[in-house]
Amino acid sequence: MSDQVHPTQLSTVMLQPASRSARTIFVSALLAVAIIIFPFFATPFHLDVANQILLASIGALSLMLLTGFAGQISLGHAGLIAAGAFTAGILSKEAGAPFWIGIPAAGATGGLLGLIFGLPSLRLRGVYLAVSTLALHFIVVYAGGEYENLVGGSGGILIPPPSLWGLKINTGKAWYVLLVAGAILAFLVTWNVVRSRTGRAFAAVHGRETVAAALGINVARTKLTAFVISSSMTAIAGALFAYYRGFVSIEAFSLYLSIQYIAMIIIGGIGTLPGAFLGALFVTLLPYLIETVVAHLPGAQAMAGSIFAVNYAAFGLVMIVFLVFEPSGLVGLWRRLERRLLIGRQSP
């Protein structure tokens, strides 16, 4: 890409506002139709994958808000998801709490933890902050393991399927409807936060803290707000995950999960909301894709036992490729392609 602005490129830039919003409406309408008709054609397996993608996108949106917009890196995302899942699990097991109590309770726990996770950010930046969230991840996981030990056995917690307004949510389709609603809600929340005064404060703090402070933004409060909102959403995603699986065990929340979420926002495109969805889609589908590819390779039987290792290796490789060659992620790739296509169409 050259830095010089090509005449045709300039015209696309000037043309953009009108055509762009029209295209956005077109694309969203297409997407809405696809989302609505999907469950009528999908097999239970496809529905399960779709539900996983939706769960992942809620988590990715909240991390995007924190890292992509407020610029605060977190390696403790899995710890927060675990906290939400365990809050829902423990409440359901010990007190028989229903879904509509478990979810807000998880949100509250997440918010509180977010405050704690966010405290180091007041003094630390960059790598040091990442490390402190990493440390908190291990502490949350330790607490979860301790609880499992206390209850006896390392079996984890079983959670009965939730019910809403008398309807039991225990089929893939019911979950799909609930999770689509959840993902849309999460998107609206993050979208509104990003466009509000708070969101502009995030951007300012992300850009340069000193300047943000000079502009009258309370840097400490902005950072803590980012952590609290993001962590609260993350914990809710964790609680949804727990209800969806019907089972919580600390094994599921390894550091690898945190890394997967970071990969989602990088691969999707950091600092963009559609990027969170694209990243969640990509990272959730990758293992299935690999499984399919490996099954068609010669010697598939021999590879079957180490499929997780193939996943790890491929995942690391994809992440490196994006970091090195396309740091603006799938969204950046899409925009570049789009621009190239438009220029191609307009120039004679």
């Binding site: 997780f308 290792a309 290796a313 995942f315 690391g316 992440m319 490196i320």
Partner: peptide, 15 residues
Amino acid sequence: LTTIALGILIRGAVV
């Protein structure tokens, strides 16, 4: 983040 990705890659490759 690149080093983290490298770590994941190595873990898979070693197995």
